[in-house]
Amino acid sequence: MSRYTGKKIVIIGDRDGIPGPAIQECLKPLDCEVIFSSTECFV
Protein backbone atom coordinates (compact mmCIF):
# COMPACT_ATOMS: atom_id res chain seq x y z
CA MET A 1 0.00 0.00 0.00
CA SER A 2 1.46 3.35 -1.02
CA ARG A 3 0.71 6.87 0.12
CA TYR A 4 -1.09 7.43 -3.21
CA THR A 5 -3.63 4.63 -2.75
CA GLY A 6 -7.10 6.02 -3.45
CA LYS A 7 -5.84 9.55 -4.18
CA LYS A 8 -6.80 11.75 -7.11
CA ILE A 9 -3.76 13.22 -8.91
CA VAL A 10 -3.36 16.35 -11.07
CA ILE A 11 -0.24 16.36 -13.26
CA ILE A 12 1.22 19.50 -14.82
CA GLY A 13 4.33 18.69 -16.83
CA ASP A 14 6.81 21.07 -18.43
CA ARG A 15 7.59 21.17 -22.15
CA ASP A 16 11.33 21.60 -21.56
CA GLY A 17 11.40 19.29 -18.53
CA ILE A 18 9.30 16.21 -17.87
CA PRO A 19 6.05 16.08 -19.90
CA GLY A 20 2.76 15.18 -18.24
CA PRO A 21 2.27 11.82 -20.03
CA ALA A 22 5.71 10.64 -18.84
CA ILE A 23 4.77 11.39 -15.23
CA GLN A 24 1.45 9.64 -15.75
CA GLU A 25 3.23 6.50 -16.99
CA CYS A 26 5.35 6.45 -13.83
CA LEU A 27 2.21 6.61 -11.67
CA LYS A 28 0.46 3.68 -13.42
CA PRO A 29 1.70 0.99 -10.98
CA LEU A 30 0.35 2.99 -8.02
CA ASP A 31 -3.27 2.72 -7.01
CA CYS A 32 -4.25 6.33 -7.78
CA GLU A 33 -6.56 8.09 -10.23
CA VAL A 34 -5.10 10.70 -12.60
CA ILE A 35 -7.93 13.18 -13.12
CA PHE A 36 -5.95 15.69 -15.21
CA SER A 37 -2.65 15.53 -17.10
CA SER A 38 -1.20 18.30 -19.20
CA THR A 39 2.11 19.57 -20.55
CA GLU A 40 2.54 23.33 -20.40
CA CYS A 41 5.20 25.78 -21.56
CA PHE A 42 6.32 28.05 -18.73
CA VAL A 43 8.12 31.10 -20.08
Rank of each mutant, 00 (worst) to 15 (best):
M1H: 15
M1N: 13
M1A: 14
S2N: 11
S2Q: 05
R3L: 11
R3G: 08
R3F: 06
R3I: 12
Y4H: 03
Y4P: 00
Y4G: 00
Y4A: 09
Y4D: 08
G6L: 08
G6R: 07
G6K: 13
K7Y: 10
K7E: 07
K8Q: 03
I9D: 00
I9M: 01
I11Y: 04
I11W: 03
I12F: 01
G13M: 06
G13T: 00
D14K: 15
D14L: 07
R15I: 11
R15A: 14
R15T: 15
D16P: 00
D16I: 09
D16R: 02
D16S: 06
G17C: 07
G17L: 02
G17P: 09
I18P: 01
P19M: 09
P19R: 12
P19L: 11
P19T: 06
P19I: 04
G20D: 02
G20F: 05
G20E: 04
P21K: 01
P21I: 06
P21N: 03
A22F: 06
A22D: 03
A22W: 03
A22M: 10
I23P: 06
I23D: 03
I23T: 05
I23N: 03
I23Y: 09
I23F: 10
Q24D: 02
E25C: 13
E25G: 13
E25D: 10
C26R: 13
C26L: 14
C26G: 13
C26E: 13
L27D: 09
L27Q: 03
K28T: 11
K28M: 10
P29G: 08
L30T: 08
D31R: 14
C32E: 06
C32R: 00
E33F: 08
E33M: 05
E33G: 05
E33K: 14
V34P: 03
V34T: 14
V34A: 05
I35L: 06
I35R: 03
I35K: 05
F36M: 08
F36C: 01
S37H: 02
S37G: 08
S38A: 08
S38Y: 09
T39D: 12
T39N: 01
E40N: 02
E40Q: 11
C41W: 14
C41M: 09
F42N: 08
